[in-house]
Design a protein around this nucleic acid. Structure first.
Length: 254
DNA sequence: ATGGCGCGCGCAGCGCGA
């Protein structure tokens, strides 16, 4: 199974890129974030034409997540169970025996903001939920935009970013706590040392200068990680006209 | 070099992302 994740920053605008990427890479599963579409506007027909089933939890203007799959999708759950959240940031389902969890972790805006506190609460709720899910599903994958760069090697300039959002100690501790549940960061498992960014600011030529961050992740349960291989980030979509600011990431499992 | 880009909304300019 090839599992992938991509923050598309508007599925309406990025649909041609998504269709092109699906045709080129043929993932079994693609988790999307920031679809920014209400469910009645989801481009289901075009994706089905491309050979993908889809489930989605969207809202107007902001957020929104979806899971595309070439295989049957069952046990669909919207949001984090028993945790009230008006923002559409989580969607899960079982595909080919793998529990797939698609997440769009809040950005946080600034460490002094209410949005940052919401981000930490959201991560805590995610932690508790994943603990339960891991007790139910041996083969589990969490894919998405985590808005956390786990290590200084995951940022273009650690000194410049300081202890702001995306790299603050509390966010990194929350990320580590997810791994301690029994999840492996598939990047760490398979990639040689070096920078493999997944996001670059639209401004100031950040992509051209490779001033990016690694904030999109694929976490695999121990049993699933054992037979996984080939973590990749595909920077080709980021080079196109009107790209998403994120690049898709993917990993293979058996 | 976070004032600089790109998105949605909605028709001007703002909130937001990371």
């Amino acid at each position: 199974m090839r599992l992938a994740s991509w923050n598309v920053n508007s599925l309406k605008v990025r649909l041609p890129h998504v269709l092109e990427w699906l045709a080129a890479q043929q993932p079994d599963v693609l988790c999307l974030q920031e679809t920014k579409l209400e469910d009645q506007h989801f481009p289901l027909a075009a994706l089905e034409e491309a050979g993908y089933q889809a489930i989605y939890a969207g809202q107007k203007t902001y957020n929104g997540v979806a899971i595309l799959s070439r295989h049957p999708i069952t046990e669909i759950v919207r949001g984090i169970p028993d945790w009230a959240d008006e923002q559409q940031r989580a969607l899960s389902a079982t595909i080919q025996g793998i529990r797939i969890i698609c997440v769009y972790v809040p950005n946080g805006q600034d460490v002094d903001s209410d949005k940052y506190q919401y981000k930490l609460r959201w991560l805590s709720a995610l932690h508790d939920w994943l603990g339960h899910e891991l007790s139910q599903h041996q083969h589990l994958a969490v894919l998405g935009d985590f808005n956390i760069a786990p290590y200084d090697t995951d940022v273009y300039d650690a000194a410049e970013l300081g202890q702001g959002i995306l790299v603050s100690p509390a966010e990194r501790a929350a990320f580590s706590a997810l791994l301690e549940l029994g999840l492996e960061d598939s990047f760490s498992t398979h990639t040689n040392p070096g920078q493999n960014f997944t996001w670059w600011d639209y401004r100031a030529g950040a992509f051209r200068r490779n001033r990016g961050l690694r904030i999109d992740h694929i976490l695999l349960s121990t049993a699933l990680a054992k037979n996984s291989s080939d973590w990749q980030v595909d920077t080709n979509p980021r080079k196109q006209e009107r790209p998403s600011d994120h690049a898709p990431v993917m990993v293979s499992t058996n």
